[in-house]
Design a protein around this nucleic acid. Structure first.
Lengths: 226, 226
DNA sequence: GGACACATGTAACGGGTTACATGATTTC
DNA sequence: GAAATCATGTAACCCGTTACATGTGTCC
């Protein structure tokens, strides 16, 4: 049997480290809390807890409601040790899947309505996530979040999440506004020169200019292009 | 044989729509251009082009260099039609994998050095991506980007990408600064009340307050929590 | 007491990754 | 002419998803 631990393994361990849960609760609450930074299907959680239990990192105890059983998992010492070791290993880089961006590249194959609908859907998604973030914020303010005593840690991801969503939201808004000014989706001199002017002002250093952040060690400037 | 099209299929089709490529070039250039919005392993591309060719959406032509062959793919009319139809379907929601955030939750299991190293690694990653974005910006300014004539479209993802990276970068900086002020990683009254004060000022509406954006249709406010 | 939603999972398939393989080209 | 690197893929494993299944409370 395979006993390599993936980030999903550690994500599950992380949650069980808080307190014991049944598989079902775990799957539900993972969706609530980690959905946005490590989204996985519920069934992946069911398989993962069994694997972790068979490796001795979780301890599974059966309970019964009538004829039907459920399993409550708690973390073992080995499980905690595995988490501790994980913290010292290199972290997986941030990555994302953003289909709407792909569609932009070939937007002229479809209609203007296609692409604006796509972008509005993205906005609806981010605003739903922002609504959720607002709920969590309110829970902490009201002092009723289950992890209230860890608010000094939890505030960090919440901060990240809100910043990110506002960034995406603002981008969608100005992108929709730009596209609304277009008569069609075809290339034109005017569109292209407007875009060039915008690109000039985008907040990133170009290779010919001095770099903004000089607090970093210099070898990071010599990384080869992949 | 299975002929369901995934977003990865469309990502490949999108790229081949620009011009013909060999599988190898495709895999390389995908890494360059789509790495950040739809990252996939190169071998996935090799399998995908064969699948798309067998479905008639790509046309594969063999070339030889000595005894060794390679295949050049170009898009067919059916391939273009598939792309066009795709643009009218619901888009997959934005999602991300961000392991560093998971580690924050259990940071006290490790050392302060563990967590700051993790965050510095994230910063190094985002700054490498920003460096790449700066190169692309410069290419457009110099008028030498291969998609220069489509700059009115390409500027939109570039804008997104730069905004996102700057947001992540700024978050990492203030998070590192916060953690630097800590003596240890344990919970404390002081850390928690500071965090609460920060949360109060985070830029997101809470459920008890009037909503910022009233330009949206009202039913989006009534979405059920999942 | 039937319908329906919630609770608690399992099975099977396929997309994604890691590892490997081999021919051509360049370097020194 | 040996070694290293680039070009061009293939094989196999396994993580993740979709679909399904069955038991239990609850509503009316």
């Amino acid at each position: 049997m395979n006993d390599r631990l993936t980030t999903t393994s550690y994500a599950v361990l992380t949650q069980v480290a808080v307190r014991p849960w049944s598989s079902y609760e775990l799957a539900q609450q993972r969706v609530r809390y980690f959905r946005y930074v490590w989204p996985r299907a519920e069934s992946a959680i069911y398989r993962e807890v069994k694997r972790l239990a068979s490796m001795g990192l979780l301890d599974g105890r059966k309970e019964y409601t009538g004829r039907r059983s459920r399993t409550i998992y708690s973390i073992t010492d080995d499980g905690n040790e595995a988490l501790r070791e994980w913290l010292g290993t290199p972290v997986a880089p941030f990555s994302m899947d953003f289909e709407a961006i792909l569609r932009l590249f070939i937007a002229p194959l479809g209609t203007k309505d296609d692409i604006t609908s796509t972008l509005k859907q993205v906005r609806a998604d981010t605003q739903e996530m922002l609504r959720f973030a607002g709920e969590v914020k309110q829970e902490f303010i009201d002092g009723i979040n289950p992890t209230q005593d860890q608010i000094y840690l939890r505030a960090l991801p919440v901060d990240f999440f809100i910043s990110l969503l506002n960034t995406v939201d603002a981008w969608v808004d100005r992108t929709l506004a730009e596209i609304e000014t277009w008569d069609d989706l075809m290339a034109s001199e005017e569109k292209n020169s407007r875009a060039l002017e915008k690109i000039r002002h985008m907040p990133v250093d170009t290779p010919d200019e001095p770099l903004k952040d000089i607090s970093k060690p210099p070898e990071s400037q010599t990384l080869r292009r992949s």
